[in-house]
Design a protein around this nucleic acid. Sequence first.
DNA 1: AATTGAATCTCGCCC
DNA 2: GGGCGAGGTTCAATT
Lengths: 225, 225
Amino acid sequence: MLPGMRLVVARCSVDYTGRLSAHLPMAPRLLMLKADGSILVHADGGSYKPLNWMTPPCTLKEDDAVWTVTNTKSGDQLRITIDEVLHDSTHELGVDPGLRKDGVEAHLQELLAADPTALGEGYTLVRREFPTAIGPVDLMCRNADGVSVAIEVKRRGEIDGVEQLTRYLELLNRDPLLAPVQGVFCAQQIKPQARVLAEDRGIRCVTVDYDALRGTVDHTQPTLF
Amino acid sequence: MLPGMRLVVARCSVDYTGRLSAHLPMAPRLLMLKADGSILVHADGGSYKPLNWMTPPCTLKEDDAVWTVTNTKSGDQLRITIDEVLHDSTHELGVDPGLRKDGVEAHLQELLAADPTALGEGYTLVRREFPTAIGPVDLMCRNADGVSVAIEVKRRGEIDGVEQLTRYLELLNRDPLLAPVQGVFCAQQIKPQARVLAEDRGIRCVTVDYDALRGTVDHTQPTLF
DNA sequence: AATTGAATCTCGCCC
DNA sequence: GGGCGAGGTTCAATT
């Protein structure tokens, strides 16, 4: 896509007809035309949501002072009547490498590593991402009695996670230097059937409150993550 | 707010820490800084949603090549590291007069209340927002035989709406003063699986054309839409 | 101010 | 590709 992103600041009025009908009176606004033909109409304020927009796939027809953007799939139309162009520039941005979300799970693991007592009285951290032949265990701890505890951390606790932890425990308990290794299944929410399965296998379930956990961990120095 | 909207095209990397952690690798992007201090990071593609953003109230600290945007309420932070500025301009847009919407569910309900015969021959309105213990029924009507009919109105008819109406009907039919109560599921478009579910439960489906409906309803006095 | 529910939702997952 | 569920949901209307 060569055209790149075009930024137009213009006094304009906008009419949308599609799922609903909407109208924007004549006023100065930013028109963002993306390479894929989509268009956003932004005002100076409000949130991240544009006043009006058209999602791809769509085509732009520039006819004198009237731009018509038509969604080629739904037929939705955006009619923009330009009164005065205040700015017009085009910028080649290329394809964005995209957002990497260090979702809640990674951050949860981090917080629990910083304060393992949320998992059990007297718990201490051995290490994060404890390596095994079938993949790393999220957290390896010791309980108050010095017994090893493997911890699986999930945002939402489901059957899959219990199975995963079970495999780790089976493997870890074959190691005479580590055995016995207990298991803790930790998540913000644990589904009933996952809890039943876990407890049936002698795995303890711990639900943690993310915000509460954040509160307990020291925030005096910036973490940067 | 004098500063207006500032548009910066720059090679930048972005780090967000707040409810979650997220990272955008170094790449050219559009940074939209609005007068209220909020900021949007857009790529050339995707939907109307920015790659990353900060909602007001927030403050921007421009420190050489690193911009730090902090939400003054939640403490969420956006760190933008600028590698190269490709464009930088500011535009005074003023306060936007705002969007006027038409054709929402409420208006559809209004039109059907004004002319219930679109729902069935001889239908008459009992009342809008008919109260029940689990919430109001959109429209309560009587059919040509005087039988009560509960009507659920949606813009788009999906499974959820059928379930909702089913719950109402179950409740209403326990009331000996009302029972039997029939059901009509009314929408501009009804998804096939919703239609199947509804009809399987004895709920009649009616699709209505918004514009046609507007035409049948008296327009001698202005409706403001 | 808190709550509720729709949204031109968007986005990702899993089937 | 459709359904389901969550989102830094956002947004508006209502209590």
